[in-house]
Design a protein around this nucleic acid. Structure first.
Lengths: 229, 229
DNA sequence: ATTTTGTACTTTGTATACAGAGAGAATACT
DNA sequence: AGTATTCTCTCTGTATACAAAGTACAAAAT
């Protein structure tokens, strides 16, 4: 990563936002590995911005827990452990279970239609084997489904936690065997919502999350092996 | 709030940290009411600091969801709704339930002793009717209890959410009738941990949280009434 | 009277300057 | 040679400068 390209945004977002998003993505994808010290002047130069917006971006990443601040030494990219993944999925599962009844309750035909539309797009990506686009699309689907519950704070916590493991879940969804199963499960989930079958919905969602976790843990272990080897 | 006193810290924390903590406290306590626009030069002058560390503090508050950023208009202090409180307590209860088994499992005699020590201090404050100190002390007790579980992320989410409602729960603990009951419940909670009686522990904690929520909602409604009237 | 437009003033967004703390290298001393 | 010490250089922490966007208000035009 010698040069870091800032995503030029259509609407004029402040540079600090673009820097924040760019760095966040780079950390989440592993492009900037854990343990990397982020020297401000260095990264400001690479991104062709001044230190001021970069520092503001770093403060946000600090709040996100993606980087760690050491007094008078600046920030360092933080690492992940298996315990982290376990906890994140515990949180995810627990909170997701809470909102499922609300989803069933609130789902309108329009919501269902929109979900089906998203599924159709997932079908195409899945058939084409486009794992690059599949991962964010699948996350999008889950996000939309959860948003029907109207529980904004809970949603925010779930998504906040999910961000940490995005890099592994991206790998997870790409795995051939898991991919097909997950895809089918997505369809089933919408079916259950439509039928307002809370019991089946809950049971499937729990399994779905559990399987996602297993694949994610696998991806993490592979990453760790690759780093140490 | 004409002048805003920065808490002078013993160890040399960066000014931005002090600014962050000061503002956070002021927002949480309601000293800076929801809807207030925070003009950077204004607040920087009041706090006798430059805009740079103030802005970095604002970026953190933004990530916390305590203030809202509007393009080219700066930040505004965000408001709370009853739905917010409900969701926060839903999250809190759900996650707390998750860690209770871990608490029972991990609690050492040393942990119990420390909790009892904290209870003794709470006894004193309660007897003295020192509601100012009682509220943070009670929060501290809960925090210490939860930390025994070793589930750091979950703890972080719980505490992160709790921060939003601190101003109301502070009022909640101060209410005479609730105070006595809560105090007794704290003692019982430790008893159950010591006896490793998960069932009673769980049942009581759930009730404890539920009651806390009710009182908190009451406090919020009073605040709203006071604002509108 | 109402709308438009021009202008001065605020305030944000970004860059840059500068001081001081630490880390590491080079030198002196035992 | 090994350790202490000083010096230098690299960074962070903070302040300040400056440009551009937005706002408010008054004067002019309809």
């Amino acid at each position: 990563m010698n040069t870091m390209i800032l995503q030029p945004s259509v609407e004029s977002k402040p540079i600090r936002e673009i820097a924040y998003e760019t760095l966040k993505k780079a950390i989440i994808t592993g492009e900037i590995p854990a343990g990397t010290r982020i020297v401000e002047t260095d990264y400001a130069d690479r991104m062709h911005i001044s230190r001021t917006p970069l520092r503001e971006a770093l403060r946000k990443l600090e709040r996100d827990g993606l980087v760690e601040y050491v007094l008078r030494r600046g920030v360092v990219v933080r690492a992940f452990t298996i315990a982290d993944v376990n906890e994140i999925y515990t949180i995810r599962n627990s909170l997701e279970m809470l909102i499922l009844p609300h989803i069933i309750e609130n789902a309108t035909p329009a919501d269902i239609a929109e979900l089906r539309q998203m599924l159709a797009e997932l079908d195409v990506l899945d058939a084409a084997g486009d794992v690059e686009k599949l991962s964010p699309a699948a996350r999008n689907f889950h996000s939309r489904l959860a948003s029907i519950s109207g529980q904004r704070r809970i949603l925010r916590v779930i998504e906040g936690q999910d961000e940490y493991i995005r890099r592994f879940s991206a790998v997870a969804i790409a795995k051939e065997n898991r991919r097909a199963a997950a895809h089918q499960e997505h369809h089933l989930l919408v079916d259950y919502v439509e039928k307002k079958d809370l019991e089946s919905f809950t049971a499937l969602m729990e399994k779905h999350i559990e399987r996602s976790k297993e694949t994610c843990l696998l991806a993490l272990k592979e990453t760790k092996l690759a780093q140490n080897g």
